[in-house]
Design a protein around this nucleic acid. Structure first.
Lengths: 233, 233
DNA sequence: TAGTGGTCTAGACCACCAG
DNA sequence: TGGTGGTCTAGACCACTAC
């Protein structure tokens, strides 16, 4: 049982929400209501409600009130880590083999990904990441050259592209998409996949100043790699 | 610029960390140091530090101090949604076909998943979820019977198992694992997969009171389904 | 104007940890 | 024992919203 008063209030409200007693868009008791109900100070109630807001269970508007969020349930998260950190944290050696790092003019399809004109200059890097000698990730990345000067001259065997990008450009936004795909011959060869083993494809787009800076296709062996995450309340 | 005092302190410390001036494992100024430095009350400093901890930038230990976290950078998240909500949000009809819902004695492998003795009573449900008539998810779930009385009598065509579980048992923890796997004949048949199309397998374990309550294998068509997520800073 | 949430203060008591 | 963070109080001022 949570012993802190603010945690009790959080649990009480979270249960009311997850049980359906409070439905999405329903109004929650006001801070001063809860002060009276629980016999605590307003700061304590405020902390409980603020944390529920930060966790996405409720929304709050000054001058209006607190409301159960539209999607208060069933929204969990999977953590996506920096590959080099993750490997080193497991106590293994991380090695990166640069298969390609060259500039090119954007093909029509690539231009569409970035929302730029065809022929715009892009860097294209392909890097194989190994954990203790075992291939774990094939990283195929396109980077908008105008936003990443010097990308083509980096030594990506010592710094990962995402580390480099986060240094030269402030990253304002990113998104991810995860799919299971059959392995192409090239992917199969680099990741040393057995026949029939699919690949887990993670597409990561990164923005800076409302422009896509990087479009990365990250291929993992379907069976040897897993995204995972754990959460406690 | 953030106008709140606690936000200023957060920004100041976050910049010191991201610039490298404070390295991982370095000690941060104590709360009372910062009270003197910024001329604010301790509650204000405490909120700044607590939020930095919640965001994973620092760790704190009562009686010891606050320290820059080992992995202060490079951790993103992928959202995992409730399937029925997700489909309805896209404006489509969600339909669930219950293929199985029966009690059984735990096999050795299942018992290991739950950390219980073999022969322990488990519910086993298999449900196919369709979006606008198209199969989108095959949900194969084991549930610890002692924690979920009445599970076998539920009509899972009207309420999803995860919604039901969240009502009868307080969920204290869950974790996820995502893999790409070749489709078994059964999975291929239910999801109407073309030959060679892999499945995206999401394994979700759910805890209540330090016991695993539910072990679910969620199979999605590799090409038609994708986990995704978007984040702004 | 009355009610809401956002923020802040200047104290306080406590459990924990190191020397 | 002295310093640390974890929590809590009983006030306060403010901007915002609805009536």
């Amino acid at each position: 049982m949570p012993s802190a008063r603010y945690a009790e209030i959080k649990t009480y409200l979270a249960q009311a929400i997850s049980s359906g007693r409070l439905a999405p868009a329903d109004r929650l008791p006001s801070e001063s209501d809860l002060v009276g109900q629980f016999g605590v100070s307003r700061m304590t109630v405020n902390r409980a409600l603020r944390e529920l807001k930060d966790e996405g269970l409720i929304t709050r508007h000054a001058g209006v009130g607190s409301f159960v969020a539209e999607r208060a349930l069933g929204s969990h998260f999977i953590e996506v880590r920096n590959i080099a950190d993750e490997i080193r944290e497991r106590g293994h050696e991380h090695r990166a083999v640069v298969l390609k790092n060259a500039a090119q003019a954007a093909k029509a399809e690539d231009a569409a990904h970035f929302g730029v004109a065809p022929q715009t200059k892009l860097h294209h890097s392909v890097i194989l990441h190994l954990e203790a000698g075992q291939p774990l990730l094939l990283e195929d990345r396109l980077v908008l050259a105008s936003k990443a000067p010097g990308y083509g001259e980096q030594d990506f065997s010592t710094i990962t592209p995402s580390e480099y990008l986060s240094r030269i450009a402030p990253l304002h936004r990113f998104d991810h998409e995860v799919r299971a795909v059959p392995a192409t011959p090239e992917v199969r060869r680099h990741l040393a996949l057995s026949s029939g083993e699919p690949a887990l494809l993670l597409v990561r787009r990164t923005w800076s100043d409302d422009r896509i800076v990087s479009y990365a296709r990250l291929y993992h062996p379907g069976s040897r790699f897993s995204l995972s995450d754990s959460f406690k309340t």
